[in-house]
Each structure stands twice: as structure tokens, then as C-alpha cells.
Amino acid sequence: MRLVEAGCEVEVSPDLLPVTLARDGVVLIQQGSVAEVRALLDRWTVPVDHPHQVADGLTVIAPRLRTDDGGNEAGFTDLPLSPHTDRSLHAQPPSVLATLMLTPARAGGSATLVDGARVLTLLRLRAEDAAIAGLRLRTTTGQLDPPVVEFVSGRARIRYRDDRIAGPYSTDGRLDLVAEFRRLISETTRFLHLGAGHGPGVVRECPV
């Protein structure tokens, strides 16, 4: 398994993975296996439970028959997904996510990546942190409203989804800020085509 910096072929030492993720937000996996990725992450992370996991911290994504879970099962189809962070409505979502392609897709097969640090930098040119902290995710049932951007100890954690399960809104009525956040998400999105044994490791926290 090789770890390389995004956008170049500079190899990353496994010992420097946490530091590189903190700096760049993403590290690319090449020629990896599930066992190798798990062994690497087990060195410095703790698995987070997922309702669809097959083992601690491990979820297999493949098209399957739909149940009654609605939009939360959209990732288990062959349809494209809009940008989102994993477990966005969970009280303590995972800080690090690794995805590995086991079988190349006959069509599609791209990972959608958004530069959260860039989004936040540009958003802060338009609004103060207090207004940004007023951005929340509202579910269709109105039961949860976790922050889209959570400022903690000099860092920011970003959570996002915009679908029929939940979407962003402003507690201050800043419709312009919601629209700007959506625009920045779209403008900073990039697509990474994945082959067998390839995948991104991403972190959803960034320094502020």
C-alpha cells in the first residue's frame, strides 16, 4: 500500500499520516487492501459505529435492495450522491474517513471531494464566525439542528448534507449565507476516479 499527497506523487510515510491529513485534509491511498487500511488507522484512531457496518468502523457499500430507510440508503445504490459528510446528523461524527475501492465500477466510480478548509476561508470573507455558527442542519422532521460549522479549540469541524433528509438553514435568517455556503460547496467540489485498491483518506476538521 502506498500513501501519496493529493495532486502529486509525493509519498507519505504512515507515521506522518496524521500530520499530513491535518495539513492537507486528504491523503490518497494506492494499491491498498482493507486489512492494510484498517491496520494503519487502528494505530491512531478509534472506530465509530455506523448503522450499516459489517464490523467495527467498516461499512461495505454496494447496490442492494432498498428498505424503508429512505434517503439514508441512497449510498447503497448505483446513483450519484451530492456532497456530504458521513454521519452528519450524529452527535459525534467521525473526524477521519477512509474509502477504498475493491471492485472498479463499470460506470462512474468517482469519489466526490470538497475542500472544507477552502469553503470556510471564503465564507469568513462574507460573515463573522458568530453568523457562520448560526448555520445548522435541519431535518425534514425538525428533530435535530446540529451546527454546520462547529468551532472548537482553534479548529473547525464541518458537517454537511443537502437532500430530502436534511439541509442547511440559518438560525439568524441569513438566507444569503446559506446560499453562499451551497455555492462554495459546489465550486470547491472535485472528482477523483478510483481504481481497485485506490481511495481517499479525509479529515473533516481544519485549523481556524
Rank of each mutant, 00 (worst) to 15 (best):
I29L: 15
V37R: 00
V46P: 01
P80E: 02
G32D: 02
L79M: 12
P51T: 05
G70M: 00
R87Q: 14
G32P: 02
D42M: 06
G32N: 03
L40P: 01
T45E: 13
G70H: 00
L81F: 07
A39N: 06
V26P: 02
P47C: 09
Q31N: 15
S82C: 04
S33C: 05
L81K: 06
N72K: 11
D42C: 08
P80Y: 02
P47N: 08
D78F: 05
P94I: 10
G32R: 02
P47I: 04
L41D: 11
D42L: 09
V54T: 11
G32V: 03
D56V: 10
T45V: 15
D24V: 09
L28S: 03
G70W: 00
E36K: 03
L28V: 09
L65I: 11
I29K: 00
S82W: 03
P94D: 12
P83F: 01
A35W: 07
V34D: 07
R66I: 00
V48L: 08
L79Y: 06
P47T: 08
G25S: 05
V60C: 11
S95G: 15
A39I: 02
A55P: 00
D78L: 05
T45A: 14
D86H: 13
V54I: 15
S82N: 04
A39G: 09
L58K: 00
G75Y: 02
H90L: 02
L58E: 01
D86K: 11
V46R: 11
R38Q: 06
F76P: 04
R43L: 14
T77N: 02
P47V: 06
V48N: 05
N72T: 13
L65K: 13
F76K: 06
P83Y: 01
D86P: 12
V46K: 14
T45H: 14
R64L: 06
L41K: 12
G57H: 00
A74K: 13
V48F: 07
T45M: 15
G25L: 03
L40H: 04
A91Q: 12
A39K: 07
I61W: 06
H52W: 12
Q30L: 14
T59K: 01
L41T: 12
A62K: 08
R87P: 00
A74T: 14
V54F: 07
R38V: 07
W44C: 08
H84N: 05
H84T: 06
L58A: 00
S88L: 10
V46I: 13
P51V: 03
R64M: 10
T77I: 01
P80M: 04
V26K: 02
L40Y: 03
P80R: 03
G75F: 01
A55L: 02
I61C: 08
L81R: 10
P63F: 06
G57S: 01
E36V: 05
R87M: 10
V27G: 03
Q31M: 09
P80F: 03
D68K: 10
